[in-house]
Design a protein around this nucleic acid. Structure first.
Lengths: 114, 114
DNA sequence: TGTAAATTCAACTCATCGGTTAATCATCTA
DNA sequence: TAGATGATTAACCGATGAGTTGAATTTACA
């Protein structure tokens, strides 16, 4: 997987199972078995998902005896937030335009029905 | 493609070509040919990428004579920003922890070297 | 009317993805 | 030292993704 980091993060987040795993990890660290428990798929599938998340830098796995403790690393999410923020002015502008339109509509209505 | 909307947006953004197309569209509307020009891949490939972006709701394509004008729709990016924001406290907390550590370090140093 | 331009559709290839089952590895404990 | 427990690796399968080339579609215009 030689994809650039941003692509890797987006790709990792494109799967609902992986997003659910992240959501679970946001509430605290967990082992693979604990993470897999609510899902209707095999432990191996979960392990693969965790590998994807790890390669994207979204989690860190550490050994603890026979367990693997998984911890969420929010750093890539921060990067993502910055990426999305590049576009923030666009929806802010559009929102302003809508405001203008609505204000205009209201005034026209008021003019028509004084 | 029956994926949930969030997955569709993340998947659409997981490709660098598509992110580049969005970046171009952020500077203003464009036709398919205009969009394709800087890329080393076929026009058809670009057209496919645009379909993916359109299905994710990230762009809107309208007919204008024989051209297709493409416009960026930032709404899904806003949704994304909100999604990422769920996790903001995590990196804020971590940042606070670092702040604490540094403050602690400074105080210790001051205590040692009064 | 017919041709050129802009774009999409169709069919195909190859790689990757998400899932499976079976086997293997790593560690604790009796 | 032998199980048992926790997790990963390997090999496979069907679906999807990104790219190609070639044909079809839509529209303007000579």
């Amino acid at each position: 997987m030689t994809a650039d980091p941003v692509s890797a993060v987006f790709a990792a987040l494109a799967d609902p199972t992986r997003r659910a795993l992240l959501a679970r990890l946001a509430t605290g660290d967990a082992t693979v078995n604990e993470l897999a428990e609510p899902f209707p798929i095999s432990l191996q599938a979960i392990s693969k998902h965790l590998t994807v998340l790890e390669r994207a830098g979204l989690i860190v796995r550490t050994r603890e005896a026979q367990w693997r403790r998984c911890r969420l690393d929010p750093a890539p999410l921060r990067t993502l937030a910055e990426w999305v923020d590049q576009y923030r002015r666009l929806w802010d502008e559009r929102h302003d335009a809508l405001d203008d339109y609505l204000r205009d509509l209201k005034e026209t209505s008021r003019d028509r029905n004084p």
